[in-house]
């Protein structure tokens, strides 16, 4: 999961494609993909608190 997150942080354009279903993440279950999409779409910034 760490590698996937690092990839998504470096390639944020992939997140929208994931949401649209035009790309998929190999090695992740449907439930894990759902969790990734939910977290990335809810947070525009990782933590506004100190950014």
């Amino acid at each position: 999961m760490q590698q996937i997150i690092r990839f998504l942080v470096e390639h944020p354009e992939v997140i929208e494609k994931l949401q649209n279903g035009t790309v998929s993440l190999i090695g992740l279950s449907e439930l894990e993909v759902k969790a990734v999409i939910k977290v990335f779409s809810e947070s525009t910034r990782p933590l506004g608190y100190w950014m």
């Binding site: 998504l8 939910k38 990782p46």
Partner: peptide, 20 residues
């Protein structure tokens, strides 16, 4: 941590267990 995505990582892991 924020720049490298460490918080995203923890939040995704938490969300996975919530979904389960």
């Amino acid at each position: 941590m924020g720049q490298e995505g460490a918080f995203y990582y923890a939040k995704v892991m938490s969300q996975i267990y919530k979904e389960k």
